[in-house]
C-alpha cells in the first residue's frame, strides 16, 4: 500500500515528503543530513544516520508507513557529512606531514621552473615514440611474414631474432646498440640510436602479435584467394592482412602505450627526453616535484590512450 501513487486534492502526484503516513523519523533524518553539512557538522551527520536507521526499521515493519527514499537520502547526507569531518580532522592532525609532502612532491617554485622544461623535453619523448612506432610496424610485419615463410631458412632467422631480442632487457639493447655501433665507427645520434634500439626490440614483440593475427584468419580465406589465381603476396595484401590488421589493432595499441613509457630508458644514454630533464631538476632542487611533473605528462598521454584502446576493442570486436 505504501507503493500506490497518491494524489492530492488537485489530482497532482504527491512527493514522498507530502504523502500521508510518511515517517517522521525519515523526515527528521533528511533535515539532520542537511544540517550536518551546514550549520551543525558532525552532530547533524550522526543524528541523520541514527534517525535514518530508526526510520527504516519502522517503515519495514509498518505497511502503512512510507518514506524509505527520504531515509536513504538522509543517511547518505549523514555519511558524507561524517567523511568531511574526518577529512578535516585528518588535515588538521597531519598538517606538518602534509606540508612536507607538498614541499617534496608539489613544490610550487620547482613547478614554476622545472615543469615547463619537462614539458618541452616531453616533446622529444613523443617524437621518439612516434618515429620508432612507424619503423616498428613495418619491420614487425616483415619479421612476421618471415616467420610464416615456407622456406625454412627465413623461418629460422626470424625465430632466432625474435627469441634473442625477447630474451634480453631493453636497457641492455639500448646500450649495446648505442655504444656498440659507435665502437664500430658508426656514430648515430642518441635519438637515432634510441629509435633503432626501440625498433629492434619492439618489432620482435609485434612480429608475434602480427603472426597471431594472421594465423587467426581462417585458412579458407587464403585458399579461396589462391584458387582465384592470386599470388601469395597478393592474397596477403588484399585478403588476409586487411582482416588480420583489424584484429591486432588493440594489442598493437597497447604496445604503443608501453613503447611511450620505455622511451624513458633512452635517458640512460643521455638523450634529453622528459625523464632525464626531470632527474636533473630533482638533483638541482632536491625534491621530487620535477619527476611528479614527468609522471603527469606521461599520464596525460597514456591514460586517454588506454581509454581509446578500450573503445577500439569494443568497436572492432563488433565487426567480427
Amino acid at each position: 500500500m505504501a507503493n500506490e501513487i497518491e494524489l492530492n486534492a488537485e489530482g497532482e502526484m504527491l512527493s514522498d515528503f507530502e504523502k500521508p503516513n510518511v515517517s517522521g523519523w525519515a523526515k527528521a533524518s533528511l533535515i539532520m543530513g542537511i544540517l550536518g553539512l551546514t550549520a551543525l557538522p558532525f552532530v547533524g551527520a550522526v543524528l541523520a544516520i541514527v534517525f535514518a536507521r530508526i526510520a527504516k526499521r519502522r517503515i519495514l515493519y509498518d505497511d502503512a508507513l512510507a518514506g524509505d527514499g527520504l531515509a536513504t537520502a538522509g543517511q547518505t547526507l549523514g555519511i558524507i557529512g561524517l567523511l568531511l569531518v574526518a577529512l578535516a580532522v585528518f588535515i588538521l592532525l597531519m598538517q606538518e606531514r602534509l606540508r612536507a609532502f607538498i614541499a617534496d612532491f608539489f613544490n610550487w617554485d620547482t613547478i614554476k621552473f622545472w615543469w615547463p622544461k619537462v614539458g618541452r623535453a616531453f616533446l622529444t619523448t613523443l617524437k621518439l615514440a612516434v618515429v620508432a612506432e612507424f619503423f616498428i610496424l613495418i619491420f614487425g610485419l616483415f619479421v612476421a611474414l618471415l616467420r610464416l615463410s615456407k622456406l625454412k631458412i627465413f623461418r629460422f632467422i626470424a625465430v632466432v631474432y625474435i627469441d634473442v631480442i625477447r630474451g634480453l632487457p631493453l636497457i641492455l639493447q639500448i646500450f649495446i646498440i648505442y655504444f656498440g655501433l659507435s665502437y664500430l665507427g658508426l656514430n648515430l645520434s642518441r635519438f637515432a640510436a634510441g629509435a633503432v634500439a626501440l625498433t629492434v626490440c619492439y618489432a620482435a614483440y609485434e612480429a608475434e602479435i602480427f603472426r597471431a593475427g594472421i594465423e587467426s584468419i581462417h585458412k579458407g580465406q587464403m585458399e579461396a584467394s589462391r584458387s582465384l589465381g592470386m599470388t601469395y603476396l597478393q592474397s596477403m595484401r588484399y585478403v588476409v592482412l586487411p582482416q588480420a590488421v583489424r584484429r591486432v589493432i588493440p594489442p598493437l595499441s597497447n604496445e604503443f602505450i608501453m613503447l611511450t613509457k620505455d622511451t624513458a630508458l633512452v635517458a640512460f644514454i643521455g638523450l634529453s627526453e622528459a625523464f632525464l630533464v626531470g632527474k636533473e631538476g630533482m638533483g638541482r632542487d632536491a625534491n621530487v616535484t620535477p619527476l611528479v611533473g614527468v609522471a603527469l605528462f606521461f599520464l596525460l598521454v597514456t591514460i586517454p590512450a588506454m581509454r581509446v584502446v578500450q573503445y577500439l576493442e569494443v568497436r572492432l570486436s563488433k565487426g567480427d
Binding site: H218, G220, Q221, E223, A224, S225, V239, Q243
Partner: peptide, 8 residues
C-alpha cells in the same frame, strides 16, 4: 568451397 570463404 563448403564454407563459402567470401572476403568479409
Amino acid at each position: 568451397f563448403q564454407s563459402f570463404n567470401l572476403f568479409p
